[in-house]
Amino acid sequence: MSLYYLQKLFYELNRNETLQVEFRANQEQVLDAFELTGEEREAVLLGNIGLLYVLGVNGQLLMHYAAFCGLAWPDYIQAMRDGITKYGQVRAGLYAMTDGKGAI
């Protein structure tokens, strides 16, 4: 797991509009600059928000990538819940879920 670099990708992507254009044009090439595991790389390429959450990406970074992928807020929340169901508890980073029910 290389959570630092996975989160760095989103940090850079969230704040750099030029990189966003490059990413939309050629995701593979942009990802080559970050030292990701195969699982992390695939999760990004598939826009698999649920898995990215389970891999430990901070929500303050991930919520912007979800919006970048076109997910509305309730869909973003649901994608994380689905990720927990499919892949299990968060593996690294800050988060441990409580009941996961929230309010929406």
């Binding site: 929500g59 303050q60 927990i84 879920m97 029910k101 929230g102 309010a103």
Partner: peptide
């Protein structure tokens, strides 16, 4: 608060 997580909205 638990923002931007599956617990979002919980207070």
């Amino acid at each position: 608060h638990w923002p931007a997580t599956p617990d979002s909205g919980k207070v």
